[in-house]
Design a protein around this nucleic acid. Structure first.
Length: 560
RNA sequence: CGGGGUGUAGCGCAGUCUGGCUAGCGCACCUGGUUUUGGACCAGGGGGUCGAAGGUUCGAAUCCUUUCACCCCUACCA
């Protein structure tokens, strides 16, 4: 018997479980993820995706993917494709084919006609400015439009003409007749159809009128028999309207439930602003590894599982939040530690020569591909008299707790032998240029009979077989956790001007040549890396996903 | 003259509806141990009196009253 671990329910799970116990919808759970195809998915979408898919999975339900494509001005097919790729990569499979709000344009047109016939909608020829004027401000009631009491026949005729392309953009709209005095602005006779002589990415030129969000989203939910329509808190004011249409139209009663958006420190999730970063050349593209997009973070090397765990750990509630980026990074490290192939890579090479090791001899030593995984196996790595170690692993005046190499110090070369420093050379500037050591033949890893204890363990690479690679490390794109949260300041004021560092010094063990494109690597004692798409057969390029935790470095910083 | 939402450790969440164990959990932080990654793992620890005030009660984060703060709503965007 395993101990039952109590996992508390979030407020949406409580609603679902109550619905389930009441037998609502015959115990059926159906959610949906409804992106507008006008940009790439970002970390905020990941939260919505995980929430919708995981909730359905937990309760044996289904999740639709529906593109909310009711505004042809901003939407494109390339985004439709990118969005599908990102959702799949995150590890989710939607029910059936991808769906589109534009598939329902005929139904929506019928719904609108029905509303006009029942006297619940009318054609308004007021200008946008006049309509805004009529709606007024939240603190005082609005005024009725002069067209509000136009005859049903007139509205019907005009709506038909709108559809037939007889009226130019902006000349008239269809408005729902709700309540101009409502304190909720969305109830003050909202516009539900507008004229837009604009080519649509799917329906082409079939339509020149398009439904507004409020007259498409809830109806689409209803058509798809979505049981729980989850959205972010800012849509809470739309809910009364959402329900009003369901009631007036007598259609399937989907239920809208709002939760708080996830905000992550140092990241922004506004498509408009992300586009600006691309357009102004702050980053190379939407999939730049510094972008908070799914594609960018994937390229950086964040594994899909880390997103899922992260979203789960963040939880679900209704209060404003700002998640520390350290939580995301912790999820990334946790997953990467489990799956990464360990590699020996020296980032900043320093020559090391084993004076008592045979010349021209190359020994193949065993290295674990991944000590966290029993079945990951081992591989052979060349070891020889002439090696490179990390410049930072040798210090002439080493502090007491420096468990690395220094004058007369003894350390182990990872998976190789224990060595003791004997000498080193220094150039005119005082930089150490080469270290000379002696090794203990009987101290070989796996068959050590030397009895010598070495506190420090260093990674290394054999000089003759070393492969030169490029590495790119990234810093945060912004210098402030909330670049949008400063009155009178622009996010560009907080852009980190020095967020990308390309380095060509690194030397890797030969196995680096056989690494897969999406294989997560751990450069031992350094960090996690992944091959970048800019790699060529001549030159491999690796993105640094994230460094290993570095308690030594942290302690050093504290000392200063 | 409006309406809606939210306030529990540094951050994120549970506990509130159905008052009652020393207010829990994750990340972060600290200490010790194990270890051929100063990683990882294991063990332990510090930190909140529950936005504030008043009330009900033997007893309140949980119930009542008042109050404060923050966020959202004024697109022919979604």
């Amino acid at each position: 018997m395993s101990e039952e671990k109590y996992i508390p329910l979030n407020f949406i799970e409580e609603i679902i479980e109550e619905d389930l116990s009441n037998g609502k919808h015959g115990g059926r759970i159906h959610t949906r993820f409804p992106p507008e195809p006008n940009g790439y998915l970002h970390i905020g979408h990941a939260k919505a995706i995980c929430t919708n898919f995981e909730l359905a999975k937990k309760y044996g339900g289904k999740t639709n993917l529906r593109f909310d494509d009711t505004n042809p001005t901003t939407e494109e097919t390339k985004y439709v494709e990118a969005i599908q790729r990102d959702i799949k990569w995150l590890g989710y499979e939607w029910e059936g084919e991808p769906l589109f709000a534009s598939d329902y344009f005929d139904d929506l047109y019928q719904y609108a006609t029905k509303l006009i016939e029942s006297g619940d909608a009318y054609i308004d020829e007021s200008t946008a400015e006049e309509i805004a004027e009529q709606k007024g401000v939240p603190t005082s009631p609005g005024k009725e439009s002069p067209h509000r009491h136009r005859s049903i026949e007139d509205s019907l005729r005009l709506f038909q003409e709108m559809k037939d392309g007889k009226h130019p953009d902006g000349s008239m709209v269809l408005r729902a007749k709700v309540d101009m005095t409502a304190p909720n602005m969305h109830l003050r006779d909202p516009v539900i159809y507008r004229v837009k002589h604009q080519h649509h990415h799917r329906t082409g030129d079939k339509w020149c009128i398009y439904p507004m969000y409020d007259f498409a989203h809830g109806q689409s939910d209803s058509i798809e028999k979505i049981t729980h329509s989850l959205c972010s808190l800012e849509f809470i004011h739309h809910r009364p309207l959402y329900n009003w249409f369901i009631e007036k139209l007598g259609i399937f009663p989907s239920r809208q439930i709002e939760f708080a958006r996830m905000n992550v420190a140092y990241m922004i999730t506004s498509k408009r602003r992300l586009l600006r970063l691309v357009d102004e050349g702050v980053v190379s593209d939407w999939d730049d590894p510094r972008m908070p997009t799914i594609s960018g973070l994937r390229r950086l090397g964040y594994p899909a599982k880390a997103f899922r765990v992260f979203c789960d750990k963040v939880g679900l509630a209704k209060r404003d939040n700002l998640i520390e980026i350290e939580l995301l990074e912790s999820c990334v490290r946790e997953e990467l530690n489990k799956v990464s192939t360990r590699m020996m890579v020296v980032m900043d090479p320093l020559k090391l020569t084993i004076t008592n090791y045979p010349d021209d001899y190359v020994e193949m030593v065993d290295v674990d591909n991944n000590p966290e995984q029993e079945d990951a196996g081992k591989r052979k790595v060349p070891f020889s008299k002439h090696l490179y170690i990390e410049q930072g692993d040798f210090m002439v005046d080493a502090p007491k707790k420096f468990f690395r190499l220094g004058p007369e110090k003894t350390v182990r070369l990872k998976n190789g032998y224990i060595i003791t420093h004997r000498d080193h050379t220094i150039d005119a500037d005082g930089n150490v240029t080469e270290v000379f050591v002696e090794y203990y033949p009987e101290s070989k890893s796996g068959s050590d009979t030397s009895g010598i204890k070495a506190k420090g363990v260093l990674h290394w690479v054999s000089r003759e077989q070393a492969v030169s690679i490029d590495t790119i490390s990234y810093d945060r794109l912004f210098t402030d956790p909330t670049p949008l949260g400063h009155e009178g300041k622009d996010m560009m004021d907080f852009v980190n001007k020095d967020s990308k560092h390309i380095d060509s010094k690194a030397l890797a063990e030969p196995h680096i040549l056989e690494v897969g494109d999406s294989e997560h690597l751990q450069f031992m004692r350094k960090g996690y890396y992944i091959k970048d798409q800019s790699s060529t057969t001549e030159k491999l390029v690796f993105n640094k996903t994230i460094s290993l935790k570095d308690s030594w470095g942290k302690a050093q910083k504290k000392m200063k």
